[in-house]
Simulated assay, not measured.
Amino acid sequence: MEALHHFSAVTGLSANSDKSSIYMAGVDDETKTKLLESTCFRAGSFPMKYLGLPLSPKKWTKLDCHQLSMKVTEKIRSVASRHLSYAGKLQVVNSILFSLHNFWGAVFILPQIVLKDVDEKCQDYLWGSSENAKKVSLVAWEKVCKPKKHGGLNIRSCRKWNMASVGKLVWLLVTDNEALWVKWVHGIYMKSDVDFWSHTPPSDCSWYWKNLNKIKLGMQQWFSQRRYMLTKDGNYSVTMSYLTLLANTDEMEDHTHLFVDCAWSKAVWRDIEQWLGVQVPQVEANMMLQFIHKKRWCRMKKEIIAAAHGARIYFI
């Protein structure tokens, strides 16, 4: 309470005991009683709401996520949504319904049954199914969720997007050691483990930490299956297309080979030079920009060549 009293003395604000609750875990009844008497707060119960999201220390169940399912159903049942064309319904799925799921999925590892239920609701809405009339889906949902250039409608699958969103936490654990919650994780679960990739979760850890490590194992399989890999300079690169450039060798890809030494990359740059009618040395990106900056060309020519160089990197 000392911190609250100090805050009140400095700011002139005080906590409203009628609107404040204290949440306790891992303490006995006697300690709970003392804390409630000293703070004059009421004991809170889980799940609690924070920024519109329910928080709970226990494993999520379908009942806990009932609110998400109900919000999606309410949006689908609205009069404005029911009388739209396929194109209009597609926009509703990609914007409104996806934003509802993403608000939850970016924070929680949601149960698979909930993710499947949300996907089914979006699928039924897109093809015109309702509680009273069931319509056959014209295209499989897996194909619909593919990018447009691969024949899909660019809809994000709830299951895969939830894994990708929570995967950001794995990335932060590996790269951002200054984040407060990363320091907390290292202090509680990874006391002796420096490398998160080789860490084995203890048997008495929370269900969320266990599931986060399961996602880590799934990400490791991406690399073992050679779908993605690390370059020599520590950056990620998609390797399926690079294997052809490397003549199917086991050599690790790097930026110098990809954008400077690779024969296919050189052929792409020669075609660009021929199209622009100029000759520019094939060097790394930062050296290329320095070369363009030093040349006594007009501003428009410099911008065109710089844009062409950027397009080449994006194409490769």
Rank of each mutant, 00 (worst) to 15 (best):
G128I: 04
C122Y: 04
I155H: 12
I155Q: 15
R159Q: 09
K149E: 03
K183E: 03
D193E: 08
F108L: 08
D124I: 00
S129V: 08
D176A: 13
N162L: 12
V166L: 12
K148E: 11
E142H: 13
Q112N: 08
L138F: 15
N132K: 07
V194Y: 06
N154K: 14
W181A: 10
I155P: 15
L110Q: 03
L169A: 13
E178M: 06
N162V: 09
K191N: 06
K134V: 13
P147S: 14
N102Q: 05
K149V: 12
K116Q: 07
D117Q: 08
D119G: 07
M190A: 13
F98C: 03
K135L: 07
R156S: 10
Y189E: 13
I155F: 12
L110P: 05
V139R: 15
L169K: 13
S165W: 02
L100G: 00
D195F: 07
V114S: 01
F103N: 09
F196T: 05
W181D: 02
H101A: 02
P111F: 02
R159V: 11
H186G: 01
L180D: 00
T175G: 01
L97H: 07
S130Q: 05
I113F: 00
K183S: 09
W197V: 12
H101Q: 11
C145H: 13
L97V: 08
V174E: 11
W184A: 14
D117F: 03
S137V: 07
S99V: 01
W141I: 11
E178D: 12
S99L: 00
S165P: 03
L172D: 04
T175P: 03
C158H: 11
S157W: 10
D176C: 13
K168Q: 11
W197D: 07
D195Y: 00
I109H: 03
L172C: 05
W127V: 10
L172R: 12
D124G: 11
K149H: 09
V118T: 07
K134L: 07
K183G: 08
F196E: 02
N132F: 06
W171C: 13
E142R: 15
L173G: 10
V185A: 14
K160R: 14
V144D: 11
L173F: 05
N102E: 02
V144Y: 09
F108C: 00
V182E: 01
K183V: 09
P147H: 12
N132R: 06
A164N: 12
